[in-house]
Design a protein around this nucleic acid. Sequence first.
DNA 1: ATTATCTATAGATCTATAGATAATGC
DNA 2: ATTATCTATAGATCTATAGATAATGC
Lengths: 212, 212
Amino acid sequence: MAEHTHHTNTEQAILEAAEREFLAKGFEGARTTSIARAAGVTHAMLHYYFRTKEKIFERILDEKMRLIGESVLTAFGQPGLPLPERLRQGIENHFDLLAAQADLPRFVVTEVFSHPERCEVMRRRIRRILDRLLVDLQRELDEAAARGEADPVDALTLLLDIISLNVFSILAYPLLAPLVGDPEGGRDRFFAMRKAENVAAIRKRILKIPER
Amino acid sequence: MAEHTHHTNTEQAILEAAEREFLAKGFEGARTTSIARAAGVTHAMLHYYFRTKEKIFERILDEKMRLIGESVLTAFGQPGLPLPERLRQGIENHFDLLAAQADLPRFVVTEVFSHPERCEVMRRRIRRILDRLLVDLQRELDEAAARGEADPVDALTLLLDIISLNVFSILAYPLLAPLVGDPEGGRDRFFAMRKAENVAAIRKRILKIPER
DNA sequence: ATTATCTATAGATCTATAGATAATGC
DNA sequence: ATTATCTATAGATCTATAGATAATGC
């Protein structure tokens, strides 16, 4: 079972080309011939290394589902900060991780959300991460509420709010950019605006309503 | 130019079957042969009435883009209510309109957001609606702020917050349902929960922060 | 006469594989 | 000997159209 020197080159080239093709066109729209051409290899090579189009796709999709889950964990997994600061950092990190691969959310929406079996796979991938994160976050929320510093909020509810705001900002950017009056090169500005707004909205969400 | 009696039947049957097929599979995944079979007509009929697959798709997509824009207008266009009530009604109406056609958001994300020319078409469709709505909503927000009843907020920002929360709730339902611990038939309950949360989050978003 | 429908098929893909040939590692 | 690559093509679709036939409205 020696390592096959050439594997890395061709196999990797195929995977990289496949990632671009699948992300851009989706499973149905992607063509194995285009992938082969983009990878600079013969079409037969795809089947030699991966047997079928499905199997190449699964490799890409799996990696992307892992990334989505990890982005949430990485973003919110920072320990030992005061709650408002932890939330701000979490939201901004999460936003930035998505923005760095802006076609990822659309890919997951398209290829996962309408395929029950793929949903099931993704759920298995994120459940552990989510559970661990939620227990931790809920404790912090409860403690802040007990100290009278925040309204009591359900951790999963709050996390869904955050993900909704962040994901939609990235998803809808191609549609919204000109509507928001961004003439040119305004991607960074648009993202900065939405990121700040999402932080503001979530901060207010946990704000304690004062007695009148 | 008399009306062609038979048009309505076959043409309509094709459009209805095409809608189901395109919504379920997207443009690339949809098959004109499947559409013909589902419509109960010969395959050649599709091309007799619509010439190409593209043209059938455009009809469906156009209708759906119109619906999306209209749902926003219908939801928030209620006149003469106090601001918090208007927002609550708007959010709930918008949510319900989306929930009634739960595959619509995913369809638009998939078929519009990654196609610049379709984005442009959609923008033209919603710009007028949006402008009218925003002027109106911004005035109400400003007045409430002037009266000291609300924080000053940008109307478009607030509308994007609302749409983000509502759309993502519907989009991600297939993935989230079992995670939220909905064992069976929990669709309505899940939707009710998210709808209430979205209203709560937006209400707090415009809440005036009291001086300490 | 015009409009609607059907049968049959052209023409273009696309995925997958068979089988030959070259490169590589013992 | 095994692994990697290429050429060529099978086999399955899929969109679109040609051309004949039936139905409809003056």
